[in-house]
Computed example of a mutant assay.
Amino acid sequence: MSSFADVLTGAKATAEGRVVSVPETWHQGRTAYGGFSSALALAEAMRVGGELPPLRSAQMAMMAPLYGDVEVRARVLRSGRNAIWMASEIYGEKGLGFTASFVFMRPVESTVSLNDCEMPSGVLVPEEAQPLSRDRGAVFLRNNFDVRFAQPPSDERRPEMFWWVRPREVTALDPTVALLLTADALPPGVMRLLSPSVPVSTMHWQVNLLTPEPETVDGWWLLRSTSDYAKDGCSSQRMALWNAKGVPMLTGVQSIALFG
């Protein structure tokens, strides 16, 4: 079984970027797991960009299935006084399948300090939370992450999910790459209102990192996805991620296609 670090180590240089092979253990349906593609695009941007400030924002578009051998490319779009913008693309056998835009920005002095991203009350700590069976869940989850349900069982059907998620192997990864690899592991909240047979697909994902140095305890991250609108096959959801001490690490929004 290949860890994400193994995938990066096995990359082969091309004229415009690097080629990697997407292991089947990182699949989500018929394509690479979205966090895998996002982390791959980020890792290439960081390799090409060199000494970059911390990542503060990212936008990812998931346009076509990616599997087998794929080529990832990155380039600097603009280098300013405080921030650097970079773009990454991933190409599969049918052409462009994934694009990402990253903003790396060093801290600057500000008189404003605001935090309206506190961890919700009533969340179970990982030690008390029920684990997701390794026989369930998407292929990428079963093979690469430990998952525990962060809320007690309930019959209430709300378009929201809370999970504790811990990647099994990130020791050789940059902490920000590891965070992005993990941050998309939670299913869309709207899936709690759907039949299990209804396919869903992420179209667009934007995240804002709230810290330049993400860290947690014992590898656990708390993920939340909350769908706030769904109609005509499209769903909009808000996302958030905290570390094991309840410190907010990331917020985001995602656009989901519903095929049923």
Rank of each mutant, 00 (worst) to 15 (best):
E109C: 00
K245C: 04
S255H: 10
S225M: 09
R30F: 12
V207W: 06
W163C: 03
D69H: 14
D184F: 00
V112K: 14
P196G: 13
V253A: 09
R192D: 03
D218P: 01
G97E: 13
G260F: 08
Y33F: 11
S3P: 05
R18T: 06
F102V: 04
D174W: 08
I256M: 00
H204I: 00
S113W: 04
W242F: 09
S236F: 08
P54R: 13
V70D: 04
N82I: 14
A100W: 01
A61K: 09
T31Q: 07
E44F: 09
Y33K: 00
H27I: 05
D6A: 04
V217I: 09
A178G: 11
A230L: 05
R134H: 01
A244Y: 01
A41C: 14
R73D: 12
A39R: 01
S79F: 00
L223F: 01
V22M: 11
P131C: 06
P188C: 08
E213M: 14
H27K: 13
V72W: 15
E213A: 15
L77C: 13
S255K: 14
A74L: 10
W242A: 06
N115E: 10
D218N: 14
R30Q: 15
Q254I: 05
M62H: 14
L42V: 07
V103E: 13
V190L: 11
E160H: 05
S79W: 05
W164E: 01
W164K: 02
L52F: 08
L40M: 08
G233I: 10
G35F: 00
V190Q: 09
S21Y: 14
P159F: 15
M249K: 09
L194A: 12
E169F: 03
A11K: 06
V48K: 14
T25C: 05
V103R: 11
G122E: 09
R18L: 11
P196I: 06
W163T: 01
Q59L: 08
G122I: 10
D232P: 03
P187H: 01
T9V: 00
G29S: 11
R224K: 15
R136Y: 01
T9N: 08
G35W: 00
M203P: 03
A64I: 08
L180N: 00
P214G: 15
S255V: 12
R47I: 09
P153Y: 03
V165C: 06
V22P: 04
A240H: 10
R168Q: 04
M191V: 12
A13L: 14
M105L: 05
G17P: 12
M62K: 06
V198P: 10
R73F: 13
F259V: 07
P187Y: 00
F162W: 15
Y33T: 01
V7D: 08
D174Q: 10
F4R: 02
M239H: 02
V112H: 11
E127W: 04
Y67F: 11
E44M: 15
F104K: 12
R136N: 03
